[in-house]
Computed example of a mutant assay.
Amino acid sequence: MGRYKPPRRRGSKYITPEGEKALRDELYQLWKLERPQVTHTVHEAAKNGDRSENGDYIYGKRRLREIDSRVRFLNKRLDELEVVERSPDDTSKIRFGAWVTLETEDGQEHRWRIVGPDEFELKTGKLSMDSPMARSMLGKGLDDEVVVQSPSGEQVYYVVGIEYQ
């Protein structure tokens, strides 16, 4: 049996200015700072002779491959991304970049920002626009009901706040 993995569906091409800056910062960190250090380490390790038992050489080469792969991905991705810098004309509806406050039926509030798939981070309340939760929110207005299908069953939320910053 082979190791073939079907290609992943590409995420949406939208990103916030903060998300683009984070990707560009990561690219700079990898290409200008980390890669030269790892290259130097591998170069020095190669001088030591037997490379088959040289941990610095083996792990350095592996790290270089990881860095190069990520740099290629970031360069391609940054070329195709579209930065959304302004709020939509109709700020009464949930669109990309909105901070949305949802309330459950038992009164618990959750606050999410709808962002691109390259910048989502659930710990900080950033939700990918490609996620089922965000897709069910898009286009809704204040006091609308949001129904999300989850593995544990259907969840119902109510939109209690929409903000654009």
Rank of each mutant, 00 (worst) to 15 (best):
P7M: 13
R8E: 13
R9C: 02
G11A: 07
I15K: 07
G19N: 08
E20L: 14
L23C: 11
L23Q: 11
R24K: 15
R24D: 08
R24V: 10
D25E: 15
Q29C: 00
Q29I: 01
L30M: 04
W31R: 05
W31H: 04
K32G: 00
L33T: 05
E34H: 02
R35Y: 04
P36Q: 03
P36L: 01
V38T: 05
V38K: 00
T39L: 13
T41K: 09
E44S: 03
A45H: 01
N48D: 06
G49I: 04
N54S: 10
N54G: 10
G55M: 14
G60L: 13
R63Y: 09
L64I: 12
L64T: 05
L64P: 02
I67G: 01
I67H: 02
S69L: 03
V71I: 15
V71Y: 01
R72Q: 08
F73N: 00
L74H: 03
L74P: 03
N75V: 09
K76M: 06
K76F: 03
R77Y: 07
L78G: 05
E85Y: 13
S87V: 13
S87N: 13
P88W: 12
T91P: 00
S92L: 07
K93C: 00
I94P: 02
R95V: 06
A98I: 11
V100A: 06
T101N: 05
E103N: 01
E103C: 00
T104P: 03
E105A: 08
E105V: 07
E105G: 08
R113V: 07
R113P: 00
E119R: 08
F120T: 02
L122G: 04
L122T: 12
K123S: 15
K123D: 14
G125R: 08
G125Q: 08
L127D: 04
S128C: 06
S128V: 05
D130V: 07
D130W: 09
S131C: 11
P132T: 12
P132M: 08
M133T: 11
M133V: 14
A134P: 01
R135E: 14
R135H: 03
G139P: 06
K140P: 06
D143T: 09
D143C: 02
D143M: 14
D144Y: 08
D144P: 10
V147P: 04
V147A: 12
V147C: 11
V148M: 14
V148I: 15
V148G: 11
S150C: 11
P151A: 14
S152H: 12
S152D: 13
G153P: 12
Q155I: 11
Y157Q: 05
V159K: 05
V160L: 04
I162C: 05
Y164S: 05
Q165A: 07
